[in-house]
Amino acid sequence: MKGQTPRGATQVIPKRAIYSLKRKKKKERRAQEVRGEAVTFSRRNEIISTIIMTIISIPIFLSYLWLFLSSFSAKMWHGLIPLKFTLHNWRFLWQPIKFGAVMHTSIWPITLNTLLLALAVTISEVLVSTLSGYALSRFRFKGRVMIQGMTMLLHAFPGVALLIAIYYVLYTMRLLDTLWGVMLVKISLEIPMSTNIIKGFFDNIPWDIEWSSFVDGCNRWQTWRYVILPLLKPGIAAISLFSFLSGWGEFLYIYTFIFTSKKQTLATFLNSLIGEFKFVDYGLLSAVATFYMIPTLLFFIFTQKALLQMSFGGRKA
């Protein structure tokens, strides 16, 4: 062993030399070095990424802070620093707002509309796309690949391009100026994407587990209920969050297909506050905007835990 020519430190240590004490020590030291390096490297990385993320998020954070503060103040010094605390801007919660010549409807029916739209989209999407995602992931049928390709294509298609066509469709179905019409449009355009997302989660559940449950005594429904659904939680959280947000934030279709102000949603209501008059009441606007954000935040907080599991999803399955 001693006679062997020493090799470069970077090379793999030959098997026989492992028994040599000298080499062993060297190897250990090297391993420590490598370990040490790795530690400092990752720590440095962490610091850098934290700094970058902080810098990026400061403007966003500040603007939300501004929004929040200005909704509670009567006057803003130079438009930046809040001066006097007031609840006047939040008056829309208990009384209809008179704004110039226009008398706006109370905000509560509008909030209800928005909530209905968002929930309808969420519930029907979760129902439809979990079932269709299961079929796409598990069953081999004719046209399966084509359907998958089409769903991607449909999602890539910009919604604006469909406006006129959808208008005609809704017109002939007598669904113009109804919330139902918008719900249907929204659901049908969102389903392909969430189906694709949830299909990925199904793909991660091995056949063995499903088969095991059959042998253990499940029928198809019980397999779905006791085995697949619990493993699918993160996926369901993800698509319900996405669809809720997209329903809650929907503007374009409401703006185009709804004409009666009673039937509008918060997004268009907010827009009408800005657009209708020459002057804008920033206090009121920021209060409504803050109000508009609350359910989104709540929804995110509740699904966050399940969402964060997403990354382990793959390893677990």
Binding site: P206, I209, W211, P230, L231
Partner: peptide, 13 residues
């Protein structure tokens, strides 16, 4: 029947 798979197929949840 009782069935044991190579992957064991235990229910992870």
């Amino acid at each position: 029947i009782g069935l044991v798979f190579q992957s064991y197929a235990l229910y992870p949840h």
